[in-house]
Write a protein that binds this DNA or RNA. Sequence first.
DNA 1: CCTCTATGTTGATGTTTTTCGATCCAAGGC
DNA 2: GCCTTGGATCGAAAAACATCAACATAGAGG
Lengths: 130, 130
Amino acid sequence: MPKQELVVLGQETADGCCPTLLTAPLDEEAATGLAKVFKALGDPVRLRLLSMIASRDGGEICVCDLTPAFDLSQPTISHHLKLLKQAGLIDSERRGTWVYYRLLPESTDRLAAVLTRPTARATEPAGTTS
Amino acid sequence: MPKQELVVLGQETADGCCPTLLTAPLDEEAATGLAKVFKALGDPVRLRLLSMIASRDGGEICVCDLTPAFDLSQPTISHHLKLLKQAGLIDSERRGTWVYYRLLPESTDRLAAVLTRPTARATEPAGTTS
DNA sequence: CCTCTATGTTGATGTTTTTCGATCCAAGGC
DNA sequence: GCCTTGGATCGAAAAACATCAACATAGAGG
């Protein structure tokens, strides 16, 4: 009974090459998966956490550097980090006493791609069963 | 007494030219604004609504085409559309009996930009005010 | 003016989310 | 072994959200 369910962003890249959200109606399953990631970003605290993690040059930041930056309790920060992790946006590693979080850039790349409107689209050869 | 508060995505482009989220820690205010938009996207129904709206060739879609695509009541769809609109992602226009919604592409563009990690960053000569 | 259809709004209700204090686990130092 | 410190987990309480039925509003057509 796995309590944490890692959301892999583009796990159905077999067929449709370009999960775009803006070019074709999303089916329910894809929408549910995407919504989980966006929901993880839909909180100011988590957004700031992600921002602090991502903007670190080494790509890593210690929780001990994150927690004091907020007016929130340590359990709350830990909870938000867990949600970001479950969304597949970050990962964590324990090194000795401390735990370090780092961005998973593929996740944000994928999100950016999903939100990007294709600038130009060549004429598609027919035959692809919609 | 404006009940609806339109969230303008990048209204503080005066200073920082590139609101990136991934390159510098977000301040609380920017995080709150961004979070509202992401939260609007953090629901499967709204994501599908946005997708249906955005993928329409004419850029517009009638509510009457949206509502029957879901197993939800009409007020619920209306509510979700309102949230998307308040987030600045879409806009609506009444033409006769029907109401048409359309994507505001600048909003998704901005979101994509915010999630995009700068691939390479040349040394910027000062003086270029966006 | 009245009626019908298409949407938005209101109020209520059950679910989810945010947050905390208390507690627990892991690693290091004594 | 014990104690301290960094983090995660566990309830529980308050706030926010999703959803619906009922009602309100806006045009169209008589």
